[in-house]
């Protein structure tokens, strides 16, 4: 009977994951592997293609080739295009924060926790969750953005002026290793829940109920991985190990953002992202 409950929990979380997130890993992998040939992404690989594609960044539906406005002499200078792109990334991230929040609320027991603790759990888990989800959109050559409608190459991201050019490389390195575990969306739904319900986040008022929920989620994840990946008996341990790497990745990222604030006076962080990053590590 207990395993039936754990399976029901996995099913529930998978369903709310599908409701909360517009681009699943399954869809992203289909696009990246070229299986969606009638829906190939627009590729941004240099400044010219960035300027051509930037108005579609964060569009849910890119106009077809013949309906795209012709690029004329009114192009912004490349530097501005780069900055505007970084701003739209922030807006997409803020939107993703609200998607993750909706997902968190669907985890049984989460909304019954003290409201302060809900804030703490989300604050500390948010960037970890976003990086895990970003891995689904990446391969060694680049990443999907704009709901899978644009593919931006890793080389182009690397060419961004300092320090932006260096910021994505560690995420690619993490993603390539993480993707080797071959988790699917139903595994991810549970893994993200486990990350969110971490009882060791600083400042939690009531640790016990958080740990109790996470314990159930962990048992559900263990069973899920056993059933979904019978040929990888060590997968559960490997997945948990990634949580340590993830914390390091996030703490390095937050440090880079803090450095940015000192060097890039024009760079203003989205207020929601500011809330999350303030006093994080």
């Amino acid at each position: 009977p207990e395993s039936a409950d754990l399976r029901a929990l996995a099913k529930h979380l998978y369903e709310s994951y599908l409701k909360s997130f517009p681009l699943t890993k399954a869809k992203a992998r289909a696009i990246l592997s070229g299986k969606n040939s009638d829906n190939a992404p627009f590729v941004i690989h240099d400044m010219r293609s960035l300027m051509e594609g930037e108005q579609f960044v964060n569009c849910r539906q890119i106009p077809t080739q013949e309906h795209r406005p012709v690029m004329g002499a009114l192009h912004p200078p490349p530097d501005e295009a780069e900055l505007r792109f970084l701003h739209s990334c922030q807006f997409r991230s803020a939107e993703a924060v609200s998607e993750v929040t909706e997902f968190a609320k669907s985890i049984p027991g989460f909304v019954n926790l003290d409201l302060n603790d809900q804030v703490t759990l989300l604050k500390y888990a948010m960037i970890e969750v976003l990086f895990i989800m970003m891995a689904a959109l990446m391969n060694k050559d680049g990443t999907l953005i704009s709901y899978g409608q644009i593919f931006m190459t890793r080389e182009f991201l690397k060419s961004f002026r300092k320090p932006f050019g260096e910021m994505m490389e560690p995420k690619f390195e993490f993603s390539i290793k993480f993707n080797l575990l071959e988790l699917d969306d139903s595994d991810m739904a549970l893994f993200l829940s486990v990350i969110i319900l971490s009882g060791d986040r600083p400042g939690l008022l009531n640790v016990k109920p958080v740990e109790d929920i996470q314990e159930t989620l962990l048992r559900s994840l263990e069973l899920q991985l056993k059933m979904n990946h019978p040929d990888s008996p060590q997968l559960f341990a490997k997945v948990l190990q990634k949580m340590t790497d993830l914390r390091q990745l996030v703490s390095d990222h937050v440090q880079s953002i803090q450095l940015l604030k000192q060097t890039e006076i024009d760079m203003c962080l989205h207020p929601l992202l500011q809330e999350i990053m303030r006093d994080l590590y």
């Binding site: 807006f91 924060v97 409201l115 804030v119 999350i276």
Partner: peptide, 21 residues
């Protein structure tokens, strides 16, 4: 903590209506 995280707090309290980001 809620005071320092007003938008996050609002997202948590709002059930389905889209929040102005």
């Amino acid at each position: 903590l809620k005071e320092k995280h007003k938008i996050l707090h609002r997202l948590l309290q709002n059930s389905t209506s889209p929040v102005d980001l």
